[in-house]
């Protein structure tokens, strides 16, 4: 596999609240190679955003805390860096894009200021050079009249345009990795498609690796090389796009796919929702976290936590159905 750009190993993140400790991420392991796009999918509260923010060490501490695990970026463990060292990583080696472009930009600062302030911190360049770089990037992300636009305020941009700004901002220092946390969720469907295309174009032009976090399988299918399916703070299945879409092995992955309309499938086929809600992460269940909602649950699922089973070089799943003693339901 060579040296991966980012290697996350057994990451565990908890939040202490009044009601006790919430184990938001419970032992997540995955890697991102240079220039590839890895998706993390899952429903709300499954820990995908916390995972993303932990890479940047953006979870508020306290109440949040990285309890266990390592996050190696180019061989350096981000989880053990000091806050000062971490600042050198943020924005420079890793850029980040957030869900809501309406609130992620400071309403009282000019767009130009917000675009250039990162690069001015990380690189010894003049304001004019920074401005020139900002103009280049606005051109790249498809914002017309960049010079004029730099002097405007965020409220003078539409939602899609603001997300383009966010992307340009994240790319200012030419990072090797771009983390996009639900970048299309807050946008209209037509705008979503444009933003996805923009990601692909940027990746082609700059070779940046992308981690895209989403609950939208449609987005994933268009953009990702590999997919991590997260449930209740764990990765329950991981594989290439093909493997996940055409050969899903975890009942939860199957459930996700069955709950999305498909253009290539039988039109009379009904959408099947996943019944129930995720477990309380105050006290995660002893066995498989999905057992309570799983149609194929066995006694073992309630009492024993399943382990990752290797199916192909890239395809792993965490499910007791892979045990040879289980009856294959599908």
């Amino acid at each position: 596999m060579g040296q991966a750009l980012l290697e996350i190993n057994e990451l565990a993140v908890s939040f202490s609240t009044q009601g006790g400790e919430v184990q938001a991420v419970r032992g997540v392991t995955f890697a991102v190679e240079k220039g590839e796009t890895v998706a993390i999918v899952g429903e709300s509260g499954c820990g995908k955003s916390v995972t993303a923010q932990s890479i940047m060490r953006l979870i508020p501490e306290p109440p949040g805390r990285i309890k266990n695990g390592t996050i190696h970026m180019n061989g350096k463990d981000l989880a053990s860096l000091s806050e000062k060292q971490m600042r050198g990583v943020r924005g420079k080696q890793i850029g980040m894009i957030f869900q809501d472009p309406m609130t992620s930009l400071n309403p009282t600062l000019k767009v130009g200021d917000q675009l250039t302030e990162g690069i001015l911190v990380h690189q010894k360049i003049s304001k004019n050079e920074a401005k020139q770089e900002a103009i280049n990037l606005l051109n790249l992300v498809g914002i017309a009249n960049p010079e004029e636009r730099l002097n405007q305020y965020p409220h003078q941009f539409s939602g899609g345009m603001r997300q383009r700004l966010m992307i340009a901002m994240a790319l200012m220092c030419k990072p090797e990795l771009l983390i996009a946390d639900e970048p299309t969720t807050a946008l209209d469907v037509t705008i979503q498609a444009q933003i996805i295309d923009l990601f692909k174009e940027i990746q082609r032009k700059t070779g940046v690796a992308i981690i895209i976090i989403t609950h939208d399988l449609g987005v994933v299918a268009q953009i990702a090389d590999r997919i991590n399916v997260m449930y209740a703070g764990e990765i329950v299945e991981t594989g290439t796009v093909k493997e996940i879409f055409y050969d899903p092995q975890h009942p939860y992955t199957r459930g996700l796919l069955d709950s999305v309309p498909r253009l290539d499938g039988d039109r009379t086929q009904k959408l099947i929702p996943i019944v129930g809600s995720p477990p309380d992460l105050f006290s995660p269940p002893e066995g498989c976290a999905f057992a309570a909602r799983c149609d194929y649950a066995m006694d073992v699922c309630l009492s024993h936590d399943p382990e990752h089973t290797k199916l192909t070089d890239h395809h792993y799943t965490k499910c007791w159905l892979q045990d040879k003693r289980a009856q294959k339901p599908f």
Partner: peptide
């Protein structure tokens, strides 16, 4: 959070 993600102090 955006500002923090840019690496500002």
């Amino acid at each position: 959070r955006t500002a923090k993600a840019k690496g500002l102090t």
